[in-house]
Amino acid sequence: MFSIENLSKEPPLPASAPSDDVLVRREDGVLTITINRPDQRNAVNGGVSRGIAAALDLLDSTPELRVAVLHGAGPSFCAGMDLKAFAAGEKTSDPVRGFAGLVERPPAKPLIAAVEGWALGGGFEIVLACDLVVAGRGARFGLPEVRRGLAARGGGAFRLPRRLPHMLAMELLLTGAPLGAEHAARFGLVNRLVDDGGALAGALDLAAVVAGSAPMSVRASKRVAVESADWPVGEGFERQRALFEPVFASGDAAEGVAAFRERRAPVWRDA
C-alpha cells in the first residue's frame, strides 16, 4: 500500500505498481506523494489513508526533506471517499491524522497540492488541508455532500469559509455546486494556475523554491500562520515570540546574512 521510490542510489521503482495505493518519491529535498488509484479516480480507501499518513510521518521525521507535493495519478486528483471500501468496513481515516491520513493533522512542513481534473468531496478537503495549491485550468473543486444527505466533515465546512469569501463558500457548501480552477484562482484558493497536464510540474517548481529557503524559518512561519487563526489579536506578538526567537538565534540566521553579504547561495544546516 505504500511504496518509497529513490530513497537511495538504487534505480527508482516503476512509476506505477498496481498493488500500491500510494507511491512516494524523494529528490532534492522534495517528497512527491502520488495517490495511485486512477481506475477509481483516486478515491480514498484504507490503503490510501495509511499510505499518506506514513508519507507525512516520513516528511516530518526526515531532516533532508523540506516540502511535499501531493497529486493523483491519471486525470483526476481525488474523488473523495471510496464508498465501496467504506461499505466493506475499511477505515478511511488514520487514527492520528484523520481522513486520508491528512485532514486532522497536516504535516509540520509545507504541503503543496497539484490538482488536475476533479477534487471532489473528501478530495477537495485534502486540498484544503494543504498549504499551497497548483491547479490545471480544467480542474474543478466541489463539496457535494449535502446532495447526498451527508456533510463535509473532513474539514471542508470550516476551512472553506477561511479560504474563500464567506458568501461564495456558503453557496458551495449549501448547494454542492462545483467551482472551476480559474474562478478559484481569482479568489485566492489556487496559488498558480497552469495549463492542463502541468500541475505536477508547476507544483514541483514551487516546491523547489520552498526547499531552497531555510527549513527552520519555513516551519516556524507555517506554524504561526496556521495557529494564529484563533489567537487573540493582542497576544499575537507574544505568542509568536516563542516560535520565532529560536529562528533568529539559529546558525541559519547568521548564514543567511553572510550569504547575502557575500552574494552566494546560503547553505542551510539547521533542520
Results as ranks from 00 to 15, higher is better:
residue 181 A to R: 00
residue 69 V to M: 06
residue 58 L to F: 11
residue 268 W to D: 02
residue 252 D to F: 03
residue 127 V to M: 02
residue 49 S to M: 07
residue 202 G to M: 04
residue 235 E to R: 14
residue 170 M to Q: 14
residue 220 A to C: 06
residue 191 N to S: 15
residue 216 M to L: 15
residue 122 G to Y: 07
residue 122 G to N: 03
residue 162 R to N: 12
residue 229 A to G: 11
residue 252 D to C: 07
residue 259 A to K: 05
residue 222 K to Q: 13
residue 7 L to R: 14
residue 77 F to N: 01
residue 111 L to Q: 11
residue 246 P to S: 13
residue 132 L to W: 09
residue 173 L to S: 04
residue 37 R to P: 01
residue 55 A to E: 11
residue 76 S to F: 07
residue 102 L to G: 08
residue 190 V to I: 15
residue 232 P to H: 13
residue 60 D to E: 12
residue 100 A to K: 06
residue 207 A to V: 10
residue 180 G to D: 08
residue 160 L to R: 10
residue 93 S to V: 10
residue 6 N to T: 12
residue 271 A to I: 08
residue 62 T to S: 15
residue 68 A to L: 06
residue 205 D to R: 15
residue 183 H to K: 14
residue 39 D to K: 08
residue 229 A to T: 05
residue 271 A to N: 01
residue 224 V to E: 00
residue 210 V to S: 11
residue 167 M to A: 14
residue 228 S to M: 14
residue 136 G to Y: 09
residue 122 G to E: 01
residue 153 R to W: 04
residue 258 A to F: 04
residue 190 V to M: 02
residue 87 A to H: 11
residue 105 R to P: 09
residue 119 A to S: 07
residue 231 W to E: 09
residue 88 A to D: 15
residue 101 G to F: 05
residue 197 G to I: 04
residue 53 A to P: 02
residue 113 A to F: 02
residue 103 V to M: 08
residue 161 P to I: 07
residue 72 G to A: 07
residue 169 A to T: 06
residue 251 G to A: 01
residue 92 T to D: 10
residue 37 R to L: 13
residue 103 V to Y: 09
residue 32 T to P: 00
residue 35 I to Q: 01
residue 148 R to A: 13
residue 252 D to K: 02
residue 153 R to P: 00
residue 216 M to N: 12
residue 226 V to W: 10
residue 89 G to A: 06
residue 189 L to V: 05
residue 53 A to L: 05
residue 67 V to D: 02
residue 45 N to L: 02
residue 103 V to C: 09
residue 251 G to Y: 01
residue 151 A to D: 11
residue 263 R to Y: 12
residue 35 I to K: 06
residue 113 A to C: 10
residue 138 G to Y: 00
residue 198 G to N: 14
residue 63 P to E: 02
residue 113 A to E: 01
residue 81 M to W: 00
residue 143 L to V: 03
residue 147 R to W: 02
residue 239 R to M: 11
residue 258 A to R: 13
residue 47 G to Y: 04
residue 192 R to L: 14
residue 214 A to N: 13
residue 242 A to P: 01
residue 72 G to T: 03
residue 254 A to V: 03
residue 265 A to L: 12
residue 23 L to M: 15
residue 265 A to W: 08
residue 88 A to V: 07
residue 87 A to F: 00
residue 50 R to V: 03
residue 91 K to E: 15
residue 250 S to Q: 06
residue 255 E to W: 02
residue 134 V to G: 08
residue 1 M to E: 09
residue 182 E to I: 05
residue 189 L to F: 05
residue 255 E to N: 07
residue 12 P to I: 11
residue 22 V to N: 09
residue 49 S to D: 01
residue 143 L to N: 05
residue 256 G to V: 01
residue 265 A to K: 09
residue 116 E to R: 01
residue 39 D to L: 14
residue 51 G to V: 04
residue 216 M to V: 15
residue 269 R to H: 01
residue 230 D to F: 06
residue 90 E to N: 06
residue 80 G to I: 04
residue 190 V to W: 03
residue 20 D to V: 13
residue 70 L to S: 00
residue 205 D to T: 10
residue 58 L to K: 11
residue 78 C to D: 00
residue 222 K to V: 03
residue 212 G to H: 13
residue 165 P to R: 11
residue 206 L to R: 03
residue 189 L to N: 10
residue 171 E to A: 12
residue 96 V to R: 14
residue 209 V to E: 15
residue 24 V to M: 13
